[in-house]
Amino acid sequence: MESQTNRQTATGQLFVVATPIGNLGDITFRAVEVLKNVDLIAAEDTRTSRKLLQHCGISTPMMALHEHNEEQAAKKLLSRLLQGESIALISDAGTPLISDPGYHLVRKLRSEGIRITPIPGASSVLAGLCAAGLPTDHFRFEGFLPRSGSSRTTALQRLAASNETNVILESPHRLLKSLKDLMPLLEEQRELVVARELTKLHEEFVSGSAGRLIEHFSERAPRGEIVLMIGPALPKNRGDITDSEIHSLLETEAMQTLAPSARAKAVARELGISKSRVYDLITGQ
């Protein structure tokens, strides 16, 4: 298999550059340097990005790359990269490709042997998680929930059954609906956290049950971009889980590929029971 770096000779490279999610001071020195020195910046919305570039004294030309023109834009960008130009990809805010355009571009360029260089920085998902007080050893990024239909129902049920922290992006006018849809599916004491206006002047974290959050945001209409985090399902009463149920899960194909200790940990997390109990069943103790 030929690596990107082996193909990287006369061609240019694409930099995937994270930008601030609110506070313009969160852009990194490296990001500014890259944006100043590339030949072109592909931006989700050039009008939004121009404010950031002006703030940082960046005059690099821009072109639009969004969900409606990504395929055509990718062809133009590939042509310029093959001529040796360097290009930066940015989204309206945060890290590109995370619920933003860019996946098809990056995939196409990688297939053509173009070097892709990430310039990490702000992310609303990680910013919310690190200050929410929910478990972060395992988490799942859900993105935006489907707005209606069976796909939404399935997504909500999956969130309710999850034994890891789940992260959802929400708009202020849909937050209450999502909380009300989740409420009957969650345990009464299940903890949720709403992170709002992250890194901005009116940044806010509100935690509690779905009912408490519904009450809070019914009285105070939410504004700004929102990250909704749902804590893991509460552990079941150990007496409710039989050895037969544990063995059934241990015998699934996915579990068979794991070492005994890893199997015990995975099953214990899934069923909300102790790892030692599962390990004892595996080893026959």
Rank of each mutant, 00 (worst) to 15 (best):
E67D: 13
G143A: 06
I119T: 09
R80D: 03
I58E: 03
S244L: 12
V38L: 00
L198E: 00
K36I: 10
P96N: 01
S79Y: 09
R30W: 07
A131P: 04
L53A: 03
D92W: 02
S207C: 08
H66W: 08
V227Q: 05
L198W: 01
R158S: 15
V167W: 07
S162F: 06
M183D: 12
T252D: 06
L228R: 02
I246Y: 03
E44H: 04
A221S: 14
E85V: 05
Q4M: 15
I58C: 05
D240M: 08
E44I: 03
K265P: 10
E219S: 15
Q13W: 08
A160H: 08
A127K: 07
L201R: 13
I214L: 09
E33W: 02
I214V: 13
L271P: 09
L213Q: 06
R190G: 04
A264D: 07
V167G: 08
A132Q: 06
R147F: 10
S151A: 11
K75M: 13
R152S: 07
K75T: 15
L65Q: 02
V267D: 02
S111F: 05
E187P: 07
T283W: 11
H68V: 08
C130D: 14
I226C: 08
T165H: 04
G121I: 04
R147Q: 14
S150C: 11
L82F: 13
E2I: 13
G211H: 12
T28Q: 04
S3Q: 12
T11N: 14
V193P: 06
I119S: 09
G239K: 13
V16C: 10
L185M: 09
A88M: 00
L169R: 08
G231C: 08
L14V: 05
A10S: 15
L192C: 01
E253R: 13
T242R: 02
L53H: 02
L97S: 04
